[in-house]
Simulated assay, not measured.
Amino acid sequence: MLQELLKPEAVRVNLESEDKEELFEEMTEVLVAQCPGLDRAEVLDSLLQREAKMTTGVVPGIAVPHAINQKIKKPICAVGISKEGIDYEALDGKPVHIVFMLLFPADDTAAHLNIMQELAFVFGVPDFYKSLMDKNSGAQVVQAIVQAEESL
């Protein structure tokens, strides 16, 4: 499932952001680059509104900001990695190093739930976090995620 969603060109292994606001702006650019018809400000606003309800930094070191978008027909994802860590206001109060930012179509609740569930399973794979932190390219990150998913 994740293999179909992830693209090496949508992965940033050296995020420049230092805080959540910068991160959302940086990662929104990656999402919009995948789907040029999207309105950058609208995407950013929907992600920030969802995040305002409750932080998506719920897994130690990992955040999954996500939102619904009326203009897309299938889910899109951007992955970011920060070696230094990002002040994310996560539940554990610690920095986030890995970010999965997702947009879901408004009319596909099943895909939304299935992808979020699959990510939760992958996050539980032993050494998943460490394996991503060791990668230096988008292709390597995608390969590591696919391998983790296949190990389930």
Rank of each mutant, 00 (worst) to 15 (best):
I81K: 13
H66P: 12
D87Y: 07
Q70N: 14
I86A: 00
N69V: 05
I68H: 11
Y88S: 07
I76Y: 01
D87W: 02
E84A: 15
Q70Y: 10
N69L: 01
G61F: 01
A67R: 08
I62H: 12
K71H: 14
A90E: 04
E84G: 01
M101H: 03
V99L: 05
I68W: 14
F100S: 13
A63R: 02
P65G: 12
P75E: 11
G85L: 06
I86N: 00
I68R: 15
D92I: 13
Q70K: 15
I68K: 15
G93L: 12
G61N: 02
L103F: 12
C77S: 10
V99M: 03
H97D: 05
S82P: 05
I86V: 07
A67G: 06
K94W: 00
N69K: 08
V79A: 08
L91V: 15
F100K: 09
P65H: 10
P60A: 03
I98W: 06
Y88F: 15
H97S: 12
V79L: 08
K94Y: 00
Y88D: 05
I76Q: 05
G85E: 04
M101D: 06
L102N: 04
G80F: 03
K74N: 10
A67E: 06
G85A: 07
D87A: 15
A90N: 10
V96W: 03
G61Q: 03
L91W: 01
F100P: 10
Q70I: 13
F100M: 10
V79T: 06
E89G: 15
P65S: 11
G61C: 03
L91A: 13
A90R: 09
G93V: 10
N69D: 14
K71G: 11
K94H: 02
L91H: 02
N69W: 01
G80Y: 04
A90M: 09
K73P: 00
L102G: 09
L103M: 14
V79W: 01
G85R: 05
K83C: 07
V99K: 01
G61H: 01
P75Q: 09
H97P: 08
Y88T: 08
L102T: 09
L103S: 14
V64W: 04
K83D: 09
H97R: 11
C77Q: 07
E89S: 15
I81D: 00
A67L: 04
A90V: 09
G93N: 11
C77A: 15
A67H: 05
K94Q: 13
G85P: 02
A67S: 12
K74F: 03
V96I: 15
K74S: 14
G93P: 10
G61A: 04
I72F: 03
P95D: 04
V96N: 07
L102A: 10
E89W: 02
G85D: 04
P60F: 00
